[in-house]
């Protein structure tokens, strides 16, 4: 798919990725549990699954302070109907009531995660599911295929996938849509025509038809796999796009760094978010956004 802004084409998008819900089908069946569709249900299920995998903490998500934590906040905050900025401006508004409620939810989730969670990123959570150390988690769709690879996974065939739980009943999944795209820089020393032909050959109908489980291709010819159905369902449920405003990168950074103070119990949710807003203002003013 051609990506364009105001008529100016600048990339060719070819795969999507988003976070969705991973769960142990066998354990859920044993306990007679349904797949949770909201985070309130996730918390209830976590309570029921306590001890099911030999640990008190059956839930997992990439809460590593920094990029990962900032992303989790963004997903949950948007799904709770929160806004990050005043529409059309770079004015931050993520330190309101919705922001504080989002942080409270994150703290409740953290209680069901490994105490090391603030240091654990996507790779660690993936390994925890693969080793059968947690019973469920919110994780990137791109990690789904490796759940069925016996070289890395102890739980081949046992993992089910579903759209990320919502925050508001009936609301959109608490996730954001990413897409990867090709760009060819003007300054490349290779022959641009050849590069383009190579890329197109890589995205041929044959590739996307036979490689359905490798990625969630953006091509109508792609054949859905066991892993990609949850992605398609997430898109149908109107998962929003990951924010792309240039100043969002600044907000994302300061949120990821500041809210760890609250999650660790050092300060109030309001104070963490106010600190983040203060840091954001400084950075945004320096770069001319405010």
């Amino acid at each position: 798919m051609l990506v364009d802004q105001g008529g100016w084409i600048y990339a060719i998008a070819f795969v999507t990725n988003l976070q969705h819900f991973f769960y142990r089908k066998d354990l859920f069946e044993q306990a007679g549990l349904g797949v949770p569709t909201t985070y309130a249900e996730v918390l209830a299920v976590a309570e029921r699954l306590r001890g099911a995998v030999g640990t008190e903490t059956p839930y997992g998500a990439a809460f590593k302070v920094g990029w990962d934590l900032g992303t989790e906040f963004t997903n949950l905050h948007l799904a709770a109907g929160g806004r990050l900025f005043e529409p059309g401006t770079a004015e931050p508004v993520f330190n309101g009531e919705t922001g504080a409620a989002t942080l409270e939810l994150m703290k409740r989730l953290l209680a069901h995660m490994s105490p090391n969670a603030p240091s654990l990123a996507t790779g660690d959570v993936t390994a925890a599911i693969q080793q059968g150390r947690i019973a469920m988690g919110t994780l990137w769709a791109s990690r789904a295929e490796a759940m069925d690879d016996p070289a890395v996974s102890e739980v081949v065939g046992e993992i089910g996938f579903a759209p990320a739980p919502a925050v508001l009943p009936g609301g959109p999944p608490a996730s954001t849509l990413f897409w990867d795209a090709f760009v060819v820089p003007k300054t490349t020393r290779a022959d641009r025509e050849t590069v383009f032909q190579e890329l197109m050959a890589g995205l041929s109908e044959e590739t996307v038809r036979t490689g359905g489980d490798l990625a969630d291709w953006i091509r109508s010819a792609a054949v859905p796999s066991r892993c990609s159905e949850a992605v398609a369902a997430s898109i149908r449920a109107e998962t929003p796009s990951f924010p792309t405003q240039p100043f969002f990168a600044l907000a994302h950074g300061v949120i990821g760094r500041n809210i760890g103070d609250f999650l660790a119990g050092g300060e109030s949710a309001k104070k963490s978010l106010d600190d983040a807003v203060a840091d954001y203002r400084k950075a945004a003013e320096e770069q001319g956004f405010l």
Binding site: M1, L2, V3, D4, Q5, G6, G7, A13, T16, G88, T89, L177, W179, I218, I235, S241, T244, G288, F289
Partner: peptide, 13 residues
């Protein structure tokens, strides 16, 4: 120097 403009964006989905 930045300006805010209204544009039509085509990106997935």
């Amino acid at each position: 120097v930045m300006e805010v403009v209204e544009v039509e964006t085509r990106s997935p989905p």
